[in-house]
Amino acid sequence: MPLPAAAPADSTVAPPGWPAGVRPPGTPDWERTATNWLLDICPPEYRTYPGLRRHPAILARFAVLHVEAGQAAVQRGLSEVRGLLRDIATHTEMAAAVDVWQYEGARLIGIRRSVGLVEEALRGQRYAARLGLSDAKY
């Protein structure tokens, strides 16, 4: 079986972790899809700021900081849950709260990676397809 042909050097590629709803960097209208996705990540009020819509790279920085604030809130919630809730919640309820914080923390890790990739692309970073040994078909 022949090996697949290499992608042209000028092809557009989305790296692992790239958000599904955003077109790859360099494709037509990709910045619009990136802007819409970033606005979905941010608080709804961000949609009312025309400057953020006009400058997607600035919006991306706002989104990074918003997601990182969510990550900090998760860490704080995990560190405080047992001390602050022990008077109002059972052990089972506190364990369920911990599960939610952990799930949310994992979700935010993925979103933070995606937002970071979009921010880098909006600043001009482009990604190249790579064929590793584990990807080769012999």
Results as ranks from 00 to 15, higher is better:
68 E>V: 00
9 A>R: 13
15 P>R: 10
64 V>R: 13
62 F>V: 12
57 A>E: 12
54 R>Y: 09
69 A>G: 13
46 Y>R: 13
53 R>K: 10
52 L>F: 07
61 R>C: 01
67 V>W: 03
31 E>G: 00
43 P>A: 10
32 R>F: 05
67 V>D: 01
49 Y>L: 12
51 G>P: 05
75 Q>N: 08
53 R>S: 11
41 I>A: 01
12 T>I: 05
47 R>K: 15
14 A>L: 11
68 E>Y: 13
75 Q>T: 14
43 P>N: 06
76 R>T: 14
9 A>M: 07
40 D>H: 12
35 T>F: 02
58 I>D: 06
46 Y>V: 08
58 I>W: 00
73 A>M: 15
27 T>R: 09
24 P>E: 02
60 A>I: 02
29 D>K: 15
48 T>I: 00
73 A>H: 10
65 L>D: 08
38 L>R: 04
59 L>N: 03
53 R>Y: 00
75 Q>H: 12
57 A>M: 08
13 V>A: 09
45 E>I: 04
73 A>T: 13
60 A>K: 02
53 R>V: 10
66 H>I: 03
51 G>L: 09
25 P>Y: 08
49 Y>W: 14
53 R>A: 10
27 T>L: 14
75 Q>C: 13
25 P>E: 02
45 E>Y: 05
17 G>P: 00
26 G>C: 11
60 A>N: 04
38 L>E: 03
15 P>F: 07
55 H>I: 10
55 H>W: 06
52 L>H: 05
61 R>A: 15
33 T>K: 01
